[in-house]
Amino acid sequence: MNIFRLAGDMTHLASVLVLLLKIHTIKSCAGVSLKTQELYAIVFATRYLDIFTSFYSIYNTLMKLVFLGSSFSIVLYMKYHKTVHRSYDREQDTFRHWFLVLPCLLLALLIHEKFTFLEVLWTFSLYLEAVAILPQLVLLQRTRNIDNLTGQYVFLLGGYRGLYILNWIYRYFTEPHFVHWITWISGLVQTLLYADFFFYYSQSWKNNKKLQLPA
């Protein structure tokens, strides 16, 4: 464990907790893409299957349970909570996210480290996580205004990805044979997707105006 990875995990934890708290306290999910949340639930469900078969550390297992629990409760809140589900912007959140699942599954069947059930699903979860934010970014572009909590959510997610890249660089130089091209490339693609959002987010902070994303 290194400081970059710990900071990355904490930032990731903060992003899901910020979102869960927002939805729980103001009983609204305006501006949040259910599709992205569903994709994240699938990402965690397919990545943390090893929670039953192998134990790495208390921290590792605890964080997996927290990520699984928070992502599924966000989806359940948005779909079934009597008040929250009414604030879900169904007409705007129209990204065909199921079209993302199949290519990621096919790619995982083609490119993986080991051809085992758990490993292919783990690789699938990496590819899916790389594109899971797309429905949320599209929704932000559509609704054009970013209420600051949703913006914070995406900002924290981007921060977690950036810290993970630093973590990989650190591990590459400190652990002799730490080479994981699949993780690195899908992680890089994911981080690049946030890049333009970061640009507009920083612009809005600099000019202290409401974040307007280009159409």
């Binding site: 990875r5 995990d9 990731h12 090893d50 192998s54 790495y56 590792n60 964080m63 997996k64 990520f67 480290e113 080991k114 085992t116 490993e119 783990w122 993970y164 973590n167 591990r171 652990e175 044979h177 730490f178 994981h180 993780t183």
Partner: peptide, 10 residues
Amino acid sequence: GSISGFHDEL
């Protein structure tokens, strides 16, 4: 690193 194929990162 993947210790015995195990992924130690979240």
